[in-house]
Design a binder for these strands. Structure first.
Length: 425
RNA sequence: GGAGGGGUGGCCGAGUGGUUGAAGGCGCACGCUUGGAAAGCGUGUUUACAGCAAUGUGACGAGGGUUCGAAUCCCUCUCCCUCCUCCA
């Protein structure tokens, strides 16, 4: 959520910047509603001041046993006027809030201009494509041959987009998750949390999934008003909602494994093969609660952690600085990490590392006290990492001519020392 | 699911219709005291909105109602605790 005071001071800037991010919200209307609301507040505050004073006098009169009837009658009328104005203010405020909740964040100055994915800027590339002398097969075929994925049974149980990992595939998936978590907690100082997978409406609004993106989420029965999390970002960022964090404790670094659930409405038929786009997948998420003056440094550090994972896996990847038009709703800046999948002949997004500055913090009321003043903290997060496309990249890069799959070295301790998965197993 | 109890400031805790934004305590900050510290003493210490400011208004889990006036009375919801029931 943007600061209404800033919008009020510089409406043109916000109109231009939010338009670049495909916002449909009319900033003019926002400014007008805000002015209306404030004008009525001033009006009603004056009436309330009058009433408070009169009430005090009435109390004194009654205590002294004197007649206060005329003042009571007069105040009854003032009370009615106050109720009327309060109602109008509430309605305007609601309308205003609804609009503001739909306005995207404003991008940082280092974010490239642009509307399309082609306008994203490649910041750097690491590694190089594998070289080999045989025709590699796609991960779906490879995985089914090796009996490590079962897409048909997943579809039977739940539908397409719900894969089953089986046997050594299940173990490999678990190895990835555990190795990710161990890096975060043992090497980089994150505290691990295991959050709820169902969250309430307030939490979904706090991180910016609601109200705008309701159709992207699985929702439970209306009576419960609970939503399946699309990412651990939601429960973990809301961990400190409504709290005031000690500035000395920042950045607070939390990480979490969770299953993630996404309806992927509107992307039917896109990347449907195998593990490329799923309704349920596994991800380890990193979340930072940062000092407002340090969040940009922290953002670079965070993307570094995600990159380190890919480097340790020996996977060729690139880092994109997303342009304004491609940036997620809540982010002020976002790096996407894309891993090279040679069989797909494509770059696959495996991580998004975002700085939301105070956008989520204002919605979720996550604050910190700086020089005696309460200020919104900055929130950041990054995938570290989402497993499915990493698994695709491993399949694409680590398969051998005989149809076996070599286990990346860092994962072998988590596989009981196993170094290769063979078709006969 | 049934019965009961409770949500007040950073924390504990008083307060059942009228200068109570809130006693008292703890904690914290600053000052005095000290060679230094502790103790002691003094002062200060919630937050949002409007305003250049003085100041005004709102907020005692949330929302609604009664009243000239609500932390205090009524209704709905929510969360926590205890007991019973049920269950991995």
């Amino acid at each position: 959520m943007l600061d209404i005071r800033l919008i009020r001071e510089n409406p043109d800037f916000f109109a231009t910047e939010t338009a670049k991010r495909n916002s449909a919200v009319d900033i003019n209307q926002v400014v007008q509603l805000d002015a209306q609301r404030r004008q009525k507040v001033v009006e009603v505050d004056a009436l309330k001041a009058q009433r408070n004073e009169a009430s005090k006098k009435i109390g004194q009169l009654k205590k002294a046993g004197e007649d206060a009837e005329s003042a009571v009658l007069e105040m009854r009328q003032v009370g009615e006027k106050i109720a009327e104005l309060d109602g109008e203010i509430r309605q305007i405020a609601q309308e205003l809030e609804e609009l503001i909740l739909h306005i995207p964040n404003v991008a940082h100055e280092s974010v490239p201009e642009g509307q399309n994915p082609e306008d994203n800027v490649v910041e750097r590339t690491w590694g190089a494509p594998v070289e080999r002398d045989f025709e590699a097969i796609d991960h779906k075929t490879l995985g089914e041959n090796l009996n490590i994925f079962d897409f048909e049974r997943g579809a039977k149980i739940s539908g397409s987009g719900f894969p089953v990992y089986r046997g050594l595939g299940a173990r490999l998936e678990r190895a990835l998750i555990q190795w990710f978590l161990d890096c975060h907690t043992q090497k980089w100082g994150f505290e691990e949390v295991i959050p709820p997978y169902l969250v309430n409406r307030k939490s979904m609004t706090g991180t910016g999934q609601l109200p705008k993106f309701a159709e992207d989420m699985y929702a439970c029965d209306k009576d419960d008003d609970l939503f399946l999390i699309p990412t651990a970002e939601v429960p973990v960022t809301n961990f400190f909602a409504d709290e005031i964090l000690d500035a000395k404790s920042l950045p607070q670094k939390l990480c979490a494994y969770s299953a993630c659930f996404r309806r992927e409405a509107g992307s039917y038929g896109k990347d449907t093969r195998g593990l490329l786009r799923l309704h349920q997948f596994n991800k380890v998420e990193m979340v930072y609660f940062s000092h407002p003056e340090k969040s940009w440094e922290d953002h670079e550090e965070l993307v570094g952690f995600a990159e380190q994972l890919l480097q340790d896996l020996g996977l060729h990847y690139r880092v994109l600085n997303l342009c304004k038009g491609d940036l997620g709703f809540s982010a002020a800046k976002c790096y996407d990490l894309e891993v090279w999948a040679p069989v797909e002949n494509n770059w696959l997004e495996v991580s998004s590392v975002s700085n939301f500055v105070d956008f989520q913090a204002r919605r979720a009321r996550i604050r910190t006290r700086i020089d005696g003043k309460n200020t919104f903290a900055h929130t950041l997060n990054g995938s570290g990492l989402a497993t499915p496309r990493v698994m695709v990249a491993i399949c694409d890069n680590y398969q051998q001519a005989d149809g076996s799959l070599v286990i990346p070295e860092v994962l072998r301790p988590y596989m009981g020392g196993l170094d290769v998965i063979r078709p006969d197993k």
